[in-house]
Amino acid sequence: MERVPVLKIGDILLVSIQIDMEDQVALQLQEDLADKIVATGTHGVIIDISALDIVDSFVGRTLATIASVSRVLDAETVVVGMRPAVAITLVELGLSLPGIRTALNVELGIAMIGTRDLSGLLDDEDEDEPDQAAVTAP
């Protein structure tokens, strides 16, 4: 069975789906991704589906599950690059994929996760500074 590779880039896991998403592939990806998030401790997952012609209800649900699992593991999932035809089909089917964040392309997806991390870092610094001041003062 074919597998979808999961790549670690900086603090982000990038999954680019280039093959037909059969049910087994989707389930395997769900497991692999959960393992990898725990192993690497990343906080962002980007799933690129720009090569997918067909997204059926099962794949849609799997994507939602992946997003939920990632959220439990403190990683944010962004699905990027959905084709117009796929989006139209999903809408016609009445699947609006609630709970999944989306972006137009990988770049905007990274920016989406990046802003969150950046704001988190800034908050940390705000908290750190008084401590450091307290340590260096005496």
């Binding site: 989006a87 809408v91 016609e92 609006s96």
Partner: peptide, 12 residues
């Protein structure tokens, strides 16, 4: 509404 939902699915 359909157009808006489809655009959202794509991330816009």
């Amino acid at each position: 509404l359909k157009t808006v939902v489809a655009a959202r699915l794509m991330g816009a």
